[in-house]
Computed example of a mutant assay.
Amino acid sequence: MTVNVRRLAGWALIVGTIVAGAGYLAANLLAPGSGDEVFRYQNWPLFEGVALVGDVIIALGLPVILTFAGRAQKLHIVGYAGIFAALVMLNVGEGTTEAFVKPYLVGHGGIPAQEPPGFAVFEGVALLALVVGSICLGIAVLRGRMLPWWIGIALIVSCILGALGLPGAWFLVPDGVFFAALFAIGVFAVRGRPDHTPATVGQAAAGTRG
């Protein structure tokens, strides 16, 4: 039995973006109040936890991006590395704090006004990785021509919208555009023809034995 790794990774992107997107939407649109008050919402840890699960699934499927490198291999590698780093550092790392630590602190003395030492640097590096990764991958998609041009534009636009600091619930739009681009990549990975896919697990094992 062989497993098509590319399609499996594509499904991971599809499922992960849907789960993560649903979790973030539910947490931020249903939570009453604003600021630290949202952490008092009883379902906040549940919805943010769902989003975290989606983020982990996305991380598992993210390497499929490299199979669409085409003529822009270096840009694809930089884009993949930046997005993967940001996903792990922001969505999973900082997201765990947002989902479970801050709700606990709100009910046990409140969230400290001063951030832990070095946290601003950590967040700054993660944001830089996201910007560089998204822009590089967007340009790589446009140059590689193995994916529709609008996926590359969406990745770049997501950065621009994020930099604008949209007010209220509109701040979710950049993440939505970014997830939509990853979802589309997953769809094309799943629909890809066999001759455009990398070696399957079974073929790789056979090659190793040979």
Score class of each variant (00 low, 15 high):
Glu115Lys: 12
Pro117Glu: 11
Gly118Cys: 02
Phe119Pro: 00
Phe119Met: 12
Ala120Val: 07
Ala120Arg: 10
Val121Asn: 05
Val121Cys: 01
Phe122His: 05
Glu123Thr: 07
Glu123His: 09
Glu123Val: 08
Val125Pro: 14
Ala126Ser: 13
Ala129Gly: 09
Leu130Arg: 15
Val131Met: 15
Val132Thr: 10
Val132Ser: 15
Gly133Glu: 11
Gly133Phe: 10
Ser134Asn: 11
Ile135Ser: 13
Cys136Lys: 04
Cys136Leu: 11
Leu137Val: 01
Leu137Glu: 13
Gly138Val: 04
Ile139Tyr: 04
Ile139Ser: 06
Ile139Asn: 11
Val141Tyr: 01
Val141Phe: 02
Leu142Val: 01
Leu142Tyr: 06
Leu142Gln: 13
Leu142Gly: 11
Gly144Tyr: 10
Gly144Ala: 09
Gly144Pro: 11
Gly144Asn: 04
Arg145Gly: 12
Leu147Trp: 07
Leu147Pro: 05
Leu147Val: 03
Leu147Gly: 08
Pro148Asn: 13
Pro148Arg: 09
Pro148Ile: 06
Trp149Met: 11
Trp150His: 12
Trp150Lys: 00
Trp150Cys: 01
Ile153Tyr: 12
Ile153Glu: 08
Ile153Thr: 11
Ala154Met: 07
Ala154Glu: 07
Ala154Gly: 10
Ala154Gln: 06
Leu155Thr: 06
Leu155Phe: 14
Val157Cys: 04
Val157Asp: 03
Ser158Lys: 01
Ser158Gly: 07
Ser158Asp: 02
Cys159Lys: 01
Cys159Ser: 14
Ile160Ser: 08
Ile160Ala: 15
Ile160Thr: 08
Leu161Trp: 02
Leu161Lys: 00
Gly162Glu: 10
Ala163Gly: 09
Ala163Asp: 05
Ala163Lys: 00
Leu164Lys: 01
Leu164Ala: 15
Gly165Gln: 07
Leu166Thr: 06
Leu166Gly: 12
Leu166Asp: 06
Gly168Val: 07
Gly168Glu: 04
